[in-house]
Amino acid sequence: MSHHIVEAKDLFFRYPDGTEAVKGISFKITHGESVAVVGANGAGKSTLLQHLNGYLIPTKGELRIGEVMLTRKNVHAIRRSVGMVFQDPDDQLFMPTVFDDVAFGPLNLGLSEENVKAKVNQALETVGMLHVIKRPPYKLSGGEKRSVAIATVLAMSPDILVMDEPSSNLDPLARQRLIGLLKGFHHTKIIATHDLDMALELCERTIVIHDGRLTADSRTLDLFQNESLLAESGLAKPLSMQGCHVCSGTAKQFQPRTVNHTH
């Protein structure tokens, strides 16, 4: 299906203050692909991601989502097909109850009341959050908020899911649950992250960005074995590929100290 393609051609973006955040990035992501966008802090990941839903318009180059070229005029069509999950779920949840929040998008799409309710229930069920439907979002835990934020996007039935650091600020169990959830989605997924272990589990392909340029684009596993490339881009090999420190005997042992405090 050609309409789920994301294609960037020589994308440039310069902020009004003159900072060039994206300097000529090109890639093509096809239907159903799951792609990780990795890079150090300030590499330009977030700026790139903000193009994907039309928040930023490239100063040069072009971005195509499906058959639609990103311009100021057709931003709405782009936003309709690209669902964006923000880094901070508090930015994404702004209505008084979880139900209202998830219903916000579908209502703006002009769906009927019955339809909206069905969509909300379905989206919340998918992320396993149906039990919090009546609660105010700000009273949920971090993991719950993240799941609800994903539900708000799912309820709009996007073709492409774009996520900014979905595993940040989650406890290990919530993180694992999130990975399991994302594995079950068949959307085209673009995930910007520092969590290379998650990228390894979720994405077959990885794009590395360094200083606004694309420095690598290949199979995740191959890429993460290239330690020099990772180091150049301000990254490090994922923990799961570093071998077990405990088994190899290289793990640091902490001994209880026997110092007498006299003060």
Binding site: Y55, D100, F104
Partner: peptide, 21 residues
């Protein structure tokens, strides 16, 4: 922060109308 929230609203089709069930 306000800008981010506004972006989140726009992403979900906010056009200045309040819609609620």
């Amino acid at each position: 922060r306000a800008q981010r929230i506004h972006l989140a609203m726009c992403c979900r089709g906010f056009d200045g109308h309040v819609r609620l069930i």
